[in-house]
Design a protein around this nucleic acid. Structure first.
Lengths: 189, 189
DNA sequence: CGCGACGTTGATTTGCCTCAACGATTGTGG
DNA sequence: CCACAATCGTTGAGGCAAATCAACGTCGCG
């Protein structure tokens, strides 16, 4: 039984004890050291990972041969390459631990088959997906509507404390600009 | 019975005839004239709309007091303000018909209650949500990894013919740059 | 016809990137 | 334990791509 995850689920749906039990039996605990990879290009994403503790980043190598971070994953977030899962195709990106990280893997096949036994679990994942979609829609809005500086200020407000956890160049990449520019931003005040 | 929609659903899940019947009974056909609004800021989004025919755009007014288009909706796409639906809060954006448009409204309450009667419908919407999320994740990747020009070329390749359907200034807004810049792009070749 | 909506083109400005050099810190091997 | 390399952040100078501002052309429609 994994309390952190069950607590998270409880916010959205009320599972019966035996359902929670069944669900937890399918999970696999993974521990990653700093800089260890969870996924690399060319591999199939195995399933969805729930971050119990730590921090991951998902990124790809862009045309300029630099790392472009798509997003971070922190405590109580689900991470995965949904593109790989949905289309059952090999991934084009990396998922890597930024810190020492503990995750729970829910294998994709298990996830789908659990939906028949635990309908509320499908409701839960449908809701998670909707939340993720809303978040990325908002993010697109921010990219087009805010200056780089506003985006940085907004990000630090949205995730106070998180800025301290990752190197600045990763933050810059995630926000879509250069480490130098971020450095100048911070120098300004 | 609405064939276009049922055909679309059939690609993902196999409903029983009586389920399809029950589902269609909940739908409400809406017709919009060009420039008519489906949603405005301050209103609650009523549910998900399936575009049978026509084209819509979803946009908000940004800080420079210009319209920022979030995305378009065309035939066989579901559109909605998911943020409004998910959090049951009033919308901050507009949805407007770009052309004369026919839509099917699935009220949010009906949608949720149908999930109990037709479990496969929840599977369908979970999948739609995942597809939408993947699409917007990809889009974020494109924004950071491609130049404006590449993004324009990519968009026209992805949706051939669509470019002709909407004014250039809308296309420019959706791609995240100015109408003048798009004009210069097109002049280049 | 005359107005408004849309697209084009030119001149100027500006925000961010690039390139480069230099510190500070951390980690590692002799 | 120290020397050295690697990693990460800072700062300066210069360049460029796209935005802005502005004027003009064209089409469609009341």
């Amino acid at each position: 039984m994994y309390r952190e995850l069950l607590d998270h689920i409880k916010k959205y749906v009320q599972l019966e004890p035996h359902e929670a039990q069944l669900f937890c039996e399918k999970l696999e605990l993974k521990k990653l050291k700093k800089k260890e990879f969870l996924l690399e290009p060319g591999r199939l994403c195995k399933g969805n990972y729930f971050v119990v503790k730590g921090c991951t980043r998902q990124f790809f190598i862009n045309k300029k041969l630099t790392e472009q971070i798509i997003h971070f994953g922190i405590e109580n977030w689900w991470i995965a390459d949904q593109d790989s899962l949905l289309n059952n195709q090999s991934s084009t990106c990396y998922i890597q631990a930024v810190e020492e990280t503990e995750l729970l893997l829910l294998n994709e096949k298990d996830r789908i088959s659990l939906f028949k036994e635990i309908p509320l679990l499908e409701t839960y994942f449908r809701t998670m997906m909707q939340k993720s979609f809303v978040a990325s829609q908002r993010r697109i809005g921010y990219i087009f509507n805010m200056t780089e500086e506003e985006r940085y200020r907004h990000f630090t407000k949205l995730f106070p404390g998180f800025v301290q956890r990752v190197p600045q160049y990763m933050l810059a990449s995630c926000l879509g600009f250069t480490p130098q520019f971020l450095s100048r931003l911070r120098a300004k005040k």
